[in-house]
Design a protein around this nucleic acid. Sequence first.
DNA 1: GTACTGACTTTTG
DNA 2: CCAAAAGCCAGTA
Length: 110
Amino acid sequence: MADASGSPSTPGGFGERVLELVAEIPPGRVLTYGDVAALLGSRGARAVGTVMARSGHLVPWWRVLRAGGHPPTGHAERALAHYRDEGTPLRPAATDAAYRVDLARARWRP
DNA sequence: GTACTGACTTTTG
DNA sequence: CCAAAAGCCAGTA
């Protein structure tokens, strides 16, 4: 298929593996950028974020969060709608945008 | 080949 | 809790 909307420029490389892994995260579960990188055998949490910004629209990006359980920068409201829809364990936060994900329960363990 | 950017992480104050 | 700094990795110019 002529995927012309955001395919990784490096086929078979890091970006493609990130999308494959994120696509396999089951609903109600989440992974942190650092976890995704670690599962791929690297520590490039930033590199994972770069891939999401580039091709995240092809995968359930809301299932990938930062350390601490905060949603991706600039997408908190969009992610919240998905979490409530999938029943992701959220935790009330006083000094946050309004919430944070309960990593202790939502973190996916492959 | 080097330099810069970025949906990050962690430590320190 | 917040702010700043250093560290790390992949992609692009």
